[in-house]
């Protein structure tokens, strides 16, 4: 088990690039399957806070991830009509041993570029936004590598953000 849990940087990069591709291609149901059943996906405001006691930008368990993806597929989701186009750009990948035998930690930098097109002259549309962040993943080997924890620390996390109705 120990040996299978080692992940190389290249394997980690391949994993993260695949996640980025699924998000950018709006292939959300396979994205859900990247996570373990008990995984938490967290975008904190205070980086080292306890999300059960402090405000988070996003704090999703499996059910809430599934809810979001279902809402994204809904034809009358107005915050996503027209939908966001995104580019998830992953860099600075580093791997380290996890806390459990079958886990690994992966750190990376992420910049998500987002724009909603449609009639771009209208307010709320046509503005290209960038969300730079550092990410901390705990990957767990369960027949394949899965996300057991995903934490995205945005650099502008304390500031008013506009329409985060897409997936980061």
């Amino acid at each position: 088990m120990v040996s299978t849990a080692r992940i190389t940087r290249q394997e980690a990069e391949d994993f993260l690039y695949e996640e980025a591709r699924l998000l950018d291609e709006r292939d959300f149901f396979p994205w859900l399957d990247l996570f373990t059943e008990d995984a938490i996906y967290w975008i904190p405001i205070e980086e080292h806070s306890d999300p059960t006691r402090a405000t988070s930008i996003l704090w999703d368990d499996a059910q809430l991830r599934a809810l979001r993806v279902h809402q994204l597929a809904h034809e009358r989701n107005f915050a996503q009509s027209p939908p966001s186009r995104t580019v998830h750009s992953v860099t600075n990948v580093q791997v380290s041993p996890g806390d459990a035998d079958n886990e690994a930690k992966v750190r990376c930098n992420l910049v998500v570029y987002e724009v909603r097109s449609g009639d771009h002259r209208q307010l709320g549309l046509g503005d290209l936004r960038a969300l730079p962040a550092k990410c901390l993943y705990v990957l767990r080997y369960e027949e394949r590598w899965r996300i057991a924890h995903k934490k995205v620390v945005l650099i502008n996390r304390h500031m008013p953000l506009i329409n985060l109705s897409f997936l980061i």
């Binding site: 930008i57 704090w59 709320g124 329409n163």
Partner: peptide, 27 residues
């Protein structure tokens, strides 16, 4: 806290659609 975040936060499932209406209204 979880339910409020799910519904009415920056990433809430309810809130951003209201904000979209405001931008459309101003337009």
């Amino acid at each position: 806290l979880y339910e409020g975040t799910r519904q009415l936060s920056t990433t809430g499932m309810v809130n951003p659609s209201d904000l979209e209406m405001f931008a459309a209204n101003q337009t």
